[in-house]
Design a protein around this nucleic acid. Structure first.
Length: 425
RNA sequence: GUGAGUGUAGCUCAAGGGCAGAGCACUGGACUGUGGCUCCAGGGGUUGGGGGUUCGAAACCCCUCACUCACCCCA
């Protein structure tokens, strides 16, 4: 085997490609019903956009981006996530303006250079929704409800919603200092990675899963206890709103975001039915991001769904959208050389009538032609021999019932109608 | 980036130092303008790749690549 797909990328073949397509369409529908409209974003951007928005000290930027240079030497990157691109586009096209509310969604492949494993690919797909221009906690609640309700309706197994507050630029630095003091005091009890992160990205230490770190981290001060009055109020209203919607959630003090631009509410949906990569959707509020990227002071809240992970869950639940192969209505087989042009004429005429039709040209024996017609999913086979050619007819056989009729091939409107009518004994 | 487990026909898998095999799929025939069933026959492989040990390697050793899972990170 000479060539094979690069590591961590996957070919999606029928019927899996059709199933995936249906899942994407379903998510478009869900976002669309909540008022979001699609933006098509480029697959690469200036590398700088991602390091500025995601954060220099995150793994994504430090070691997982696919970087390359443009002809002019500019530094470009395949997008590792969608929010940065969407916000860039919203600023560029003046959709992120004070007082203006925009609901936008995107969908498509993302790229991160990681070691592949269950639910983790180097090219994977995300669908994300972003609501710009509102800082109202009920918009957080509504966005969360959109995904949670759909998860309920499609029986996503063992799914739990976790939420936390990341605070705001007013209160997070104070908490950060308190946390760093606590971590430094307990430095000897922490793993090497945590010791290093205490300097570089202290909030991430809370996310550590090394067993020996757990007692220290469990006892660490909780961010929610140090929120400023505004942030506290926002978080409480989100919690109350979710309760009002009867959406169950768990406040998880050690839930933090890997991406620096999140403020206030952070949330994610996890499922024990997945492997180690248990998060299938995640999001949060990012009130500082638009300005951070050079736009106006416009708040935002958004989320992204990992489509491959959702697909795994829906497969387990048995609620995957039905993969439908495009139906071939009729397969047309010329029995003699002289009937070939006639076959082409009928194929074109039927397709023009909206009937899907394939030609079977490469089979010398009629038995093979029947087998191929079945394999291609045809409902009918149309046989064209010398008799049909001279009489201007076509011999139709309905493959399901075995009913056979020889009818005029033209006008095509009449033939198309015959093919659409039920053929029962 | 680290670790473990797997790589044999298109697919699912046998053979565990001594002739590389089965089922399904594929191709041809029985069957010349009428399919699915059946029967008969056939094609397919440098055993992921490279090197080594051995009279002899799919098997044992080393390197490498890929897949799977876990760490890490994240959707």
């Amino acid at each position: 085997m000479k060539y094979q797909a690069p590591r961590g990328v996957k070919d999606l073949l029928p019927p899996d490609s059709e199933t995936f397509r249906r899942l994407e369409d379903e998510i478009r529908e869900v976002f669309g019903r909540s008022g979001f409209r699609e933006v098509r974003l480029p697959i690469f951007e200036s590398a700088d956009l991602f390091s500025r928005s995601i954060g220099e000290s995150t793994d994504i930027v430090e070691k997982e981006m696919y970087l390359f240079s443009g002809k002019g030497g500019e530094s470009l990157a395949l997008r590792p996530e969608g929010t940065a691109s969407l916000i860039r586009a919203a600023i560029e096209h003046h959709l992120a303006e004070p007082g203006r509310v925009e609901r936008l969604y995107y969908q498509g492949p993302m790229f991160r250079h990681e070691r592949p494993q269950a639910g983790r690919l180097r090219q994977f797909h995300q669908a994300g929704a972003e609501l710009l221009g509102s800082s109202d906690p009920d918009d957080d609640v509504d966005l969360i409800a959109t995904v949670s309700r759909h998860a309920q309706a499609t029986n996503v197994p063992a799914s739990r919603l976790l939420i936390n507050s990341m605070g705001c630029p007013k209160c997070r630095p104070a908490y950060r200092e308190i946390l760093v003091n606590y971590l430094v005091k307990n430095r000897d009890l922490l793993c090497e990675t945590c010791q290093r992160r205490t300097e570089t990205n202290p909030l991430r230490v809370l996310d550590c899963k090394v067993p020996s770190c757990q007692p220290v981290l469990e006892a660490a001060p909780h961010l929610v206890e140090f929120l400023c009055p505004e942030s506290r109020n926002h978080f409480e209203q989100v919690c109350r709103g979710l309760e009002g919607e009867s959406l169950s959630f768990t406040v998880t003090h050690r839930l933090v975001r890997g991406l620096d631009y999140y403020t206030e509410t952070a949330f994610e949906w996890v499922s024990d039915a997945l492997g180690a990569q248990s998060t299938w959707a995640a999001g949060g509020r990012y009130n500082g991001l638009v300005r951070h990227l050079g736009g106006a002071d416009v708040p935002g809240v958004g989320l992204a769904i990992g489509l491959e992970r959702l697909l795994l869950l829906r497969e387990l639940a048995g609620t995957l959208p039905q993969a439908t192969r495009p139906a071939v209505h009729i397969a047309i087989h010329p029995l003699e050389e002289t009937a070939r042009p006639y076959a082409h004429r009928i194929l074109a005429a039927l397709r023009h009538q909206g009937i899907s039709a394939v030609g079977i040209f490469g089979q010398a024996r009629i038995k093979r032609a029947f087998l191929q017609a079945e394999r291609e999913g045809a409902l009918f086979i149309g046989l064209l021999g010398g008799d049909e050619l001279s009489a201007g007819t076509i011999t139709l056989k309905h493959l399901g019932s075995g009913i056979q009729k020889t009818l005029p091939a033209f006008p095509p409107e009449v033939l198309a109608e015959t093919l659409r009518a039920p053929w029962t004994p």
